[in-house]
């Protein structure tokens, strides 16, 4: 699905909860939980699309990955791989190039994804509903006015800002990467992806 479709769904669900007449008919808690879910998926798919576009457009990365027979689409089907890619890239940039500005860009994307992923897990796995006293970082799905700042994070404007930031940061990251002479960036990307692919296969073996 296109990222915009997830945003459209989130917008629709958000509008449903703001309409008291309709909310009475439907289950407001489920609507709000689904809204959080769709919000995360919008950001995940936006990041994935931006990353795949920028990588496939770059001939040097493309040829490096073709040689290594790395299937990008398969690797980034898993949420943790996307977060791990940005985290590992940030780590390498910080260690090998001492370029904290670029490392920060990668870490920013990873941090945004992690934040919204946790919000989604709180919504999807009902983590706070069974034991609300124990978990302090709960989102109130029944009465959003009780947790207004968290719901501001999930507002459509906030989500669009996040998506724009992620796209801008990913594009800038890859543009600046190609200008660094200290490292051969396609090799760095290949190394990260090969390691992730290896870990992905090991995880699969363990779960099968």
């Amino acid at each position: 699905m296109h990222p915009q479709e997830f945003l459209n769904m989130a917008t629709y669900l958000d509008s449903l909860t703001k309409n008291p007449n309709q909310t009475k008919l439907l289950n407001p808690e489920i609507i709000r939980r689904t809204h959080v879910n769709r919000s995360y998926y919008f950001l995940y798919h936006t990041t994935r699309k931006a990353l795949l576009e920028v990588m496939t457009k770059d001939n040097q990365i493309e040829s490096e990955l073709t040689t290594a027979r790395i299937k990008l689409h398969e690797i980034f089907q898993h949420h943790w791989t996307l977060i791990k890619f940005y985290e590992d890239l940030a780590e390498i940039l910080k260690q090998e190039t001492q370029n904290t500005e670029l490392a920060d860009l990668a870490e920013d994307v990873s941090f945004a994804l992690k934040t919204y992923k946790i919000l989604r897990e709180l919504a999807d796995y009902h983590i706070d509903i069974h034991n609300p006293k124990k978990v302090k970082h709960k989102i109130d799905f029944l009465d959003p006015t009780k947790t207004p700042t968290t719901w501001n994070l999930l507002s459509i404007n906030s989500l669009q800002n996040r998506a724009n930031e992620i796209i801008t940061k990913t594009n800038k990251l890859f543009k600046d990467l190609s200008e660094i002479t200290l490292i051969w960036y396609p090799q760095i990307i290949r190394d990260i992806l090969e390691k992730i692919e290896f870990q992905l296969n090991t995880k699969r073996k363990r779960t099968s």
Binding site: H78, I83, N152
Partner: peptide
């Protein structure tokens, strides 16, 4: 400050909650 383990992939994070001024985009 609480540990959080992802129910899906087992990844672990530490969630730190802090008071934030009410803004339109707290992120």
């Amino acid at each position: 400050i609480e540990p959080h383990t992802s129910p899906e992939d087992g990844e672990q994070e530490i969630i730190v909650t802090i008071k934030i001024e009410a803004t339109e985009d707290p992120f």
